[in-house]
């Protein structure tokens, strides 16, 4: 019986947080396409303005592809031995103030410092500074091996017009769980 209670508990939590879609598992190209199609249809159904629809879609594309390019083996999945190797989580919440696109994934501690620094840098900037920073990285940056141009977080911050909320939860000596919440309103 406890299993049934747990699934209800999870369902209830997601419902109370106004999560309109959530996914936990291994992200593939086909899956990202399906998520995007579903969300696009939902946004049309909510008769949101074109501005909001496009912002949510754009942020979702960027965050999904970030998860996809930076997916790594989850130490939690490894310890269980049965879960997907590179499990991530993504959710979209919709409430009175707008949308939240929330992601979570394990990252190597050696990458965490650089990521944290970039996020702090972005959050310290206003709209005009972000625009200049974007143009600077666009014209000087090279596409990294993982396909990122270093532009993703800057672009997401510009579209959000709000500060990026993020956290790093230490897991073991090599890994932290990175979570990100991008608001669109």
């Amino acid at each position: 019986m406890s299993g049934h209670l747990e699934i209800y508990d999870l369902y209830e939590k997601l419902e109370r947080k106004n999560i309109m879609i959530s996914f936990k598992g291994e992200l593939t190209s086909e899956l990202m396409e399906s998520i995007l199609t579903v969300v696009e249809r939902k946004l049309e159904g909510f008769s949101e303005s074109a501005t909001i629809r496009k912002k949510v879609f754009n942020v979702l594309v960027e965050l999904l592809q970030n998860l996809f390019h930076h997916r790594g083996v989850s130490p939690l999945a490894l310890s269980s031995g049965f879960s997907d190797g590179d499990s991530v989580i993504i959710m979209i919440a919709r409430n009175a103030t707008g949308y939240s696109i929330i992601t979570g994934n394990f990252i190597n501690n050696r990458d965490a410092g650089q990521l944290k620094q970039r996020l702090e840098e972005i959050n310290a900037m206003g709209a005009e500074e972000l625009k200049q920073f974007y143009k600077q990285v666009l014209s000087n940056g090279r596409i990294s091996q993982k396909g990122g141009a270093g532009l993703g977080m800057i672009d997401v911050a510009r579209k959000s017009k709000d500060k990026l909320e993020y956290g790093f939860i230490p897991f073991d000596e090599n890994h932290s769980f990175f979570s990100l919440n991008v608001k669109v309103a």
Partner: peptide, 12 residues
Amino acid sequence: EYFNTSSSKCIL
């Protein structure tokens, strides 16, 4: 209609 940041570099 949409482009991602990885395309933005290619468009440049």
